[in-house]
Write a protein that binds this DNA or RNA. Structure first.
Lengths: 141, 141
DNA sequence: CTTATTGATTGATGATGTCAACTATTGAGG
DNA sequence: CCTCAATAGTTGACATCATCAATCAATAAG
């Protein structure tokens, strides 16, 4: 079942992470719906940091999706007054997105809910949690 | 940003896991497309274990989605000959799903690709990987 | 037997996602 | 300067995903 039999620990760690990721995938829609957002909109909103405008094309890259898909997502979020589209000064082809104050508030509410640690983390001691953080950090960066 | 300020390590660990989960979300569509599947179909296929038929309603529960959505997903997978719909013997209202041989082969190919550990895991030593496995296991179970 | 409940399907509708075609802007050479 | 290719974003067509309300058949409860 694993592609690199030489490295059983790597395989198992990865499998556990993937399993976790699938479980997450199931819980996101409900959480998003509380804020009247879709999972895709959450993902996009998450990528626009407050005070840090970002071109649409860059978002398409980060989401690994077609640029035309971003157009639609942005249309809906913009019509709700959550984000703002502005042509770039350097290159008038590119449109730069930024959060409105309303959007920034919603984004922070979203992050707060998404990253609220579930009870299951209580299974680990403070020490173990610290160890987990160290390992994950090195993995992701 | 964190809901339980008392537990900063739990917060950070959870945030890292969520971040990982989002990154995963971006890579799944491409991986799935290689097998001509959508992410949702992957998720569903993943839940039908070979030799272990499962009622449709139970799948809807596991996917946390509407039953009518499962109908459509199953329609497409069945028309491709990957899974099979059969009324249950005990209760003829429920339809039980099972993998066809073709579906079982595709599922195992899918799992193999999904759980192939990426190079990034090489950043951790064998010992660290073992530690990570232990922590994640306790977290998930 | 009658009625209510449950599991699945259908139809309507909106969101997501891809692709191909198009517009506008930019940049490079002649 | 002028042409031409490349780039960023939009549009329209189309398939999939996902929900809801309504329906049908089978089961369960009275």
């Amino acid at each position: 079942m694993c592609a690199k039999p030489k490295d059983p620990h790597a395989c198992e760690a990865w499998q556990l992470l993937v399993r976790f990721s699938f479980a997450q995938r199931s819980s996101l829609p409900a959480l998003a719906a509380e804020l009247e957002l879709s999972p895709a909109q959450c993902h996009l909103l998450n990528l626009i940091e407050p005070g840090r405008p970002i071109p649409m094309g860059q978002l398409a890259g980060a989401l690994s999706c077609d640029a035309s898909n971003v157009t639609g997502l942005v249309d809906r979020l913009e019509s709700r007054g959550l984000i703002q589209r502005r042509p770039s000064d350097q290159d008038r082809r590119v449109k730069v997105l930024s959060l409105t104050p309303l959007g920034a508030r919603l984004r922070s509410a979203l992050l707060e809910r998404m990253t609220a640690p579930p009870a299951t983390l209580g299974k680990l001691s403070a020490e173990e949690q610290r160890a987990l953080v160290k390992l994950l950090r090195r993995l992701i960066e």
